[in-house]
Design a binder for these strands. Structure first.
Lengths: 205, 205
DNA sequence: TCTGCGAGTGAAACGTGTTTCGATTATGCC
DNA sequence: GGCATAATCGAAACACGTTTCACTCGCAGA
């Protein structure tokens, strides 16, 4: 529709285009992982992805769109890997904490990447609504999966209003503590603790 | 100490310098109020404050430092105005909600300004730690004041570990919902509701 | 096969945050 | 008052996100 949205994998016609998109996101992740937000320079991404600068901007209309799209892809992959086996834990709270802890540890293993993606997400304005929404969907889906019994196929879950509200708040708390961890205002332990507190308050059975 | 911190009001020697600092922050607020984050352009701030660009950078080492310092001053003023009379409300939760609602309404009255200050706060990295800490102190102090009985002079409040933790979480939730409001992902009503839920969960008597 | 067109290219240009530096002015000290 | 030092000024330069544009290329349809 408008030229203001990132091109998604689905709406890309040819295999060559999908490959370009993949190369761009790969380059983004690689540069972010090496030097954080500042190291993701549009010229560098274009060069590394072997694509002209103008093309990069055709696929992703800004650096923020690019990074938030990269974040969405990361969460998508995390979801896929999570789908492979049931989430361990006896209660919804246990399972949610398991899933969030697992993801938090993964993020903390690559601080530069996490810094880049988190700051982009926080800095995004209304023009990035679609990409942000995609990220939110992945997080919500992940939490839904954890909140429900392990044996329900994820395609059959139909979350209640309440479920979604709770997932939203938990996602907010998770993100807020990640932001603080990224900026050195909170330790890894603080992040775990925030999540623990929030989940137990919101998901008491 | 390092050249990487904003010059605070206190460490400025002469009246002329304090006046320059004030002019700079005034110009920042005015421009932000008119056009949001993007309208706060360093050259424009310098010109409006009648100060050279280099001087502006001597007082505030980056646009983010500048905006977060402006945010700190706003909260400081809110605190002062709040100190003038006791906070109404019978329970801690009521008083906290009163204070936050009052501030939220004030912020929502000037969306551009709020957008500028909020986004700067969220985008800030570790180098802005001092300024961010100042903001946190003001918010914490405001909440402390509300959580304790109305007649205790604020200078005599000595908050417990627990109090501080709770205030921190409430502050996080408040900020997170403001961010979403600023980016159009949540309505004013959503903001009120988030605060309401968080406060009642965390401050049940 | 030819042709027209949209995608991609390469390079330059622009805007704004940030840095730099020599000249000028203010300030504190004798 | 005269001087040393620091603060401020003015203006240019630099860095990186973003835009623009003339050009090329590959391919779908005639």
């Amino acid at each position: 529709m408008t030229s203001m949205n990132s091109l998604t994998f689905e709406e890309l016609g040819s295999a060559a285009q999908r490959d370009r998109r993949k190369r761009i996101l790969d380059a983004t992740i690689a540069l972010a992982s090496k030097g954080g937000f500042d190291a993701v320079q549009m010229r560098a991404v274009a060069e590394r992805a072997d694509v002209a600068l103008g093309t990069l901007y055709r696929y992703f209309p800004s650096k923020i769109h690019l990074l938030v799209s990269a974040l969405a892809r990361e969460f998508e992959q995390a979801n896929i890997s999570l789908d492979r086996k049931p989430v361990p834990g006896d209660t919804a709270a246990d399972r949610v904490i398991y899933v969030l802890s697992r993801n938090t540890r993964a993020l903390q293993r690559d601080p530069n990447l996490t810094e880049a993606l988190t700051r982009a997400f926080m800095f995004a304005d209304a023009s990035v609504a679609n990409e942000i929404h995609a990220v939110g969907m992945h997080v919500t889906r992940m939490l839904m999966r954890a909140m429900h019994a392990q044996d329900v196929p994820s395609s059959e879950i139909e979350p209640t209003e309440e479920d979604i509200a709770v997932a939203k708040v938990i996602g907010d708390v998770w993100l807020a503590s990640l932001v603080q961890w990224v900026t050195g205002r909170a330790s890894a332990a603080d992040v775990s603790k925030s999540i623990d507190v929030a989940v137990r308050l919101l998901l008491r059975d």
